[in-house]
Simulated assay, not measured.
Amino acid sequence: MDEFQARARFRDARVARLATADAQGRPHLVPVTFDLDGDTVAFAVDPKPKRTTDLRRLRNIAANDRVCLLVDHYDDDWTRLWWVRADGRARVAGDGADRERALGRLAERYPQYRDRPPRGPVVLIAVESWTGWSYEG
């Protein structure tokens, strides 16, 4: 799968898995809703109930900005399998124009954000590489 196809499949996915690691390299994996703008992926800390606002994914990004996002499609017909990975560097935007732009794009993509806009920070990921695979039988 070429980079153009990988980016297109990623863009069309509804959820991604975000992998972060802390300063000691301990991994952490969570699902995120996201928006893709060029080679920048954005996700927000939304108002869904959480045990704490001190989220491990944000602490990990502060300690180690390298992240990975994965989207995939599974089907019992294995000729339809594919996955796309975006590797990059993340930064947290607590306020400002970048945050507001990302929130607007997220609200266009997910109606839930129109009714309850996220109040938490937005994470912006500058994708440095796109990789993907699809079944080619």
Score class of each variant (00 low, 15 high):
Asp22Gly: 12
Arg59Ser: 14
His73Ile: 15
Leu106Ile: 07
Glu100Arg: 07
Arg57Leu: 11
Val71Lys: 01
Val127Asp: 02
His28Gln: 10
Arg109Thr: 06
Arg85Pro: 05
Val92Pro: 02
Arg57Pro: 01
Arg89Tyr: 12
Asp54Pro: 06
Asp54Cys: 12
Arg66His: 11
Thr131Glu: 03
Phe34Val: 02
Thr52Trp: 12
Thr40Lys: 01
Arg116Thr: 12
Ala19Lys: 08
Leu81Val: 06
Val15Pro: 05
Ser134Ile: 01
Val67Tyr: 04
Pro121Lys: 01
Glu136Tyr: 09
Asp35Lys: 01
Lys48Leu: 10
Val84Glu: 00
Trp83Leu: 09
Val123Arg: 00
Lys50Arg: 14
Arg119Met: 05
Asp77Tyr: 10
Arg11Ile: 00
Asp95Tyr: 06
Thr131Trp: 02
Gly38Met: 08
Asp75Asn: 04
Arg119Leu: 08
Met1Gly: 04
Glu136Gln: 14
Trp130Gly: 05
Gly25Gln: 03
Leu124Gly: 02
Glu100Pro: 04
Ala6Leu: 00
Pro27Trp: 15
Trp82Glu: 14
Pro27Ser: 11
Val67Glu: 02
Leu58Cys: 10
Asp75Ser: 11
Arg59Asp: 11
Arg11Trp: 01
Arg101Asp: 03
Asp65Glu: 12
Asp22Ile: 12
Asn60Phe: 01
Phe4Thr: 13
Gly104Glu: 10
Thr52Gln: 07
Asp87Cys: 06
Ala93Met: 10
Ala93Asn: 09
Arg51Ile: 15
Thr53Met: 09
Glu136Met: 11
Arg80Cys: 07
Asn60His: 11
Val30Glu: 05
Phe10Tyr: 08
Ile61Glu: 04
Tyr135Trp: 11
Asp2Leu: 02
Ala8Phe: 00
Trp133Pro: 09
Ala16Cys: 11
Pro47Tyr: 04
Arg9Asp: 08
Trp133Asp: 06
Arg114Pro: 00
Pro49Met: 03
Asp2Asn: 13
Gly120Arg: 02
Arg99Met: 03
Trp78Gly: 10
Asp54Phe: 10
Glu3Lys: 13
Gly120Ser: 01
Arg101Gln: 06
Arg7Ala: 06
Trp130Glu: 07
Trp83Lys: 02
Ala8Asn: 01
Arg14Met: 14
Ile61Leu: 03
Val41Cys: 00
Asp54Tyr: 11
Pro111Phe: 14
Val92Asp: 07
Asp35Leu: 03
Asp115Phe: 06
Leu124His: 04
Asp12His: 12
Ala63Cys: 09
Gln24Ile: 07
Arg57Ala: 08
Arg66Asp: 08
Tyr135Asn: 13
Lys48Gly: 09
Leu81Asp: 06
Ala107Val: 11
Pro117Gly: 11
Lys50Asp: 07
Ala63Arg: 09
Gln5Pro: 02
Trp78Val: 14
Ala8Ser: 04
Ser129Ala: 15
Leu69Val: 07
Ala19Pro: 09
Pro118His: 00
Thr33Ile: 05
Arg105Gly: 00
Pro31Lys: 08
Arg119Tyr: 02
Gly38Ser: 13
Arg89Thr: 15
Gln5Trp: 02
Asp22Pro: 05
Asp95Phe: 09
Arg105Asn: 02
Arg51Met: 12
Gly88Met: 03
Pro121Cys: 02
Arg11Gln: 07
Phe34Gln: 03
Arg17Tyr: 13
Asp76Phe: 14
Pro47Trp: 05
Glu3Thr: 15
Glu3Cys: 11
Arg59Lys: 11
His28Asn: 12
Asp115Thr: 10
Glu100Met: 06
